[in-house]
Design a protein around this nucleic acid. Structure first.
Lengths: 336, 336
DNA sequence: GAAAAGATTGCAAACGTTTGCTATTATTAC
DNA sequence: GTAATAATAGCAAACGTTTGCAATCTTTTC
């Protein structure tokens, strides 16, 4: 169907290995011949078959990115960084969205390995990491991003979530709040556990006592933030401030508070996490902890490319493993 | 590096063609042998090389999706629909984000063709369509989504943008507004031109005169909506209502209006387009035109799969071409 | 018990490239 | 003009699968 290198060779009246060399700009082919070949290729509208090339080269110049939720604006930003970084090095990115479904995650890992991408970047669903490592028994380079398994010998990049949680809570405490709730994803989620740890750290540092009634676990979705605060308010037992584990949930909390006729931050202050674009909208003005999303993506690619190079050189993966922990930043706006 | 089918064959003590048949669950292989082979494959942690398979099969069971802006929540929703639809048919999706850069668009088209995806879904940057068609001289199945070239013999799916523009404007007119502005992307953008046409249609129908000062072209970004309305207000020449060509721009307009000390909809009413999730937030409550994003994605895959099947059967592409135009829906909230 | 039929397995070509090696041709040096 | 060298082009193997066909082995049939 598609013209092959042999069609070009026939038209240009040379052998197909010469065509290959000419089109790849490799030395050792006469300039006149090269021109003739290029013309022939253009005439036939020839596109090299990357699949065949990948087979013999043993590399595909592509990488996979597995994220849990493409509709959370956090991830598109990370993706942009990854894509830009990849392109600069001639790589392209296969984006896979798992929709928070464990089964999709393993599906995509396998798919990417079978497609022989050169490496994978994963923002894992936390409780699947053992499963992931099981699937990954191929020695394909992998870097974790954003949500890091506490112990891993792989390269990874994320922010200091403990510090992020600490900063958010500290800010609320210093603003005078004492009853500060935490709304997060299910326990066992890496980054969230750390943010919670930071939260507890702040309590300890200021000599305050935790109130378990105000620590709630849900998932990562806006609706959940909304539901949780709604229920709290209806039951009449709610804190004076909320540290939500991501901006989406914080937005849900905002909605719940306002729908209940209460005000933010007057009745309930809210601090989020991530600093997605919508957090800075004038209607929202969400106080939050900023993650350098785009930069995280860019760094993740660099780590992955490093690992890929290392594995091509036959280095053991421990040697190339590098961990990058970035600084979170408190952004004070109007909600807390 | 990775185990191949031959390694499995050696371990199971059979020929590698038998391994291929056994693992593909093809008939004609003894049950005992099959078990032995499966065990061997598991022991070696064998993953078939999809690249090699693609080469001989002449299909990759993958498709490309090219979108201009992954940070506009409209597209992730479409993507979800496409991915879900693709997965149901055993396909996987290569998402490419062009960032509104023409050069990236052609880059990705070429890349996808070279990677021999089985088909491509494109939400094109409008003024690149001729270029796209030029690049596409391969006979790969392609369907356009969301932003359709006015004349194309390819399958495509989008909403009725003229009607969408008409509905939005009609709503504003019937709400009593007379000075209604339009903020859109650069002229020549397909879907936008149509929305503008719907806007003009409404003016005509209600016997109103267009005011060219209130028709502005920018791009698709929030900042642009913000900038345009800010400038208008500063110059003191601004309409009483704005129909913004997408929700992102509408949100920018909202911001600009409020920052200028004016109120929405009191001083300026705003209607958007798309109905992205944030439009329904209580802080925003944006009146808008809903596009069935997820469904559009799902339909686009169906069209593409159709075209792929047709092209496998050697049908001419005109035969399989189908166009789906969906109904837009007016969602009245608080901004207009 | 032999022939026929069916089940199972293996052989080898094909997919479209890249690339090491060899063969040919052109150029240079003497 | 010949030998040595450099430049160019071609041959063929390799990458890891799938699959049509042939070969072998087992079972059935009469």
């Amino acid at each position: 169907m598609n013209p092959t290198i042999k069609d070009v060779a026939r038209l240009a009246n040379v052998s197909y290995s010469t065509v290959s060399r000419a089109l790849a700009n490799r030395p050792g082919v006469n300039e006149a011949t090269r021109c003739k070949i290029i013309r022939a290729a253009e005439e036939l509208n020839y596109r090299p078959n990357a699949i065949a090339r990948g087979l013999v080269r043993g590399q595909t110049l592509s990488m996979g990115l597995i994220i849990p939720d493409i509709t959370n604006p956090f991830f598109p930003e990370v993706h942009r960084g990854i894509e830009d970084g990849a392109r600069e090095s001639g790589y392209s990115v296969f984006l896979c969205n798992t929709n928070w479904e464990r089964e999709r995650e393993t599906h995509y890992i396998n798919l990417l390995i079978e497609k022989r991408v050169d490496g994978i970047i994963i923002a894992p669903i936390s409780d699947t990491v053992d499963k992931i490592e099981e699937e990954l028994k191929s020695n394909i380079p992998v870097v974790y991003v954003s949500n890091l398994p506490p112990k891993t010998d792989r390269s990874c990049v994320a922010i200091d979530n403990i510090r992020g949680g600490f900063l958010a809570t500290k800010h609320l405490i210093e603003s005078g709040y004492r009853e500060i709730g935490f709304i997060g994803a299910p326990e066992g989620s890496f980054s969230i556990d750390q943010r919670l740890e930071g939260y507890k750290l702040a309590f300890r540092k200021y000599g305050m006592k935790l109130d378990q009634r105000f620590i709630c676990f849900g998932d990562f979705k806006r609706e959940t933030g909304y539901r949780i605060i709604k229920r709290m308010i209806e039951e009449g037992i709610y804190p004076r401030a909320i540290f939500a584990e991501n901006d989406l949930m914080a937005l849900g909390v905002l909605q719940g508070v306002k729908e209940s006729g209460l005000s933010v931050p007057g009745d309930i202050a809210v601090v989020g996490f991530d600093d997605i674009p919508f957090a800075s909208f004038p209607e929202v003005q969400l106080t939050t902890i900023r993650q350098p999303k785009y930069e995280m993506g860019k760094m993740a690619v660099q780590l992955l490319l490093n690992d890929i190079r290392a594995s091509n050189n036959g280095l053991r993966k421990e040697l190339s493993c590098r961990k990058i922990i970035l600084e979170p930043e408190l952004i004070v706006r109007k909600t807390g």
